[in-house]
Design a protein around this nucleic acid. Sequence first.
DNA 1: GCCAACGTTGGC
DNA 2: GCCAACGTTGGC
Length: 147
Amino acid sequence: MKSEPDTFGINDLYNKPNQTEHWDGVRNYQARNMMRDDMKLGDRVFFYHSNCEMPGIVGIMEIVKEGYPDFSAFDPDDKHFDPKSDHEHPRWMMVDVKYVRTLSRTITLKELKHQEELAGLALVRRGNRLSIMPVSKGEWEFILSLE
DNA sequence: GCCAACGTTGGC
DNA sequence: GCCAACGTTGGC
């Protein structure tokens, strides 16, 4: 899962009560579908810092609440307000994530791009801008072996 | 259903 | 700040 550290970085998650936060604001259907259908309680997630000096994987989180309506879409004052989403027919979903640990170092995007084993990783495929992307078990373990 | 215009993402 | 690569919108 990607987030801009200037907006919400891994240290912000670390400092939350229970080190837990809802992952709101996602307004892309593919990403929503993953939160709605694929992300299960206990699943592990990489925390990726995007749009910053050193883009890359910085930590690990865990899903502690499965997909439910993103209430930030209901709030006209919220940056991610969507008038087409309401309580009866919520259009957007989110999950709750909990901090697990910070990696001993940032595994940079540049580094990930250079690994043959990760050629299939969604993150490094051409032009991928999704804010949530799947990681296979093999890819997960390989990435952690780089730490 | 097509597709041009537009807005966004995010690396660089 | 630039701009490639997307996704979305809306006229037709």
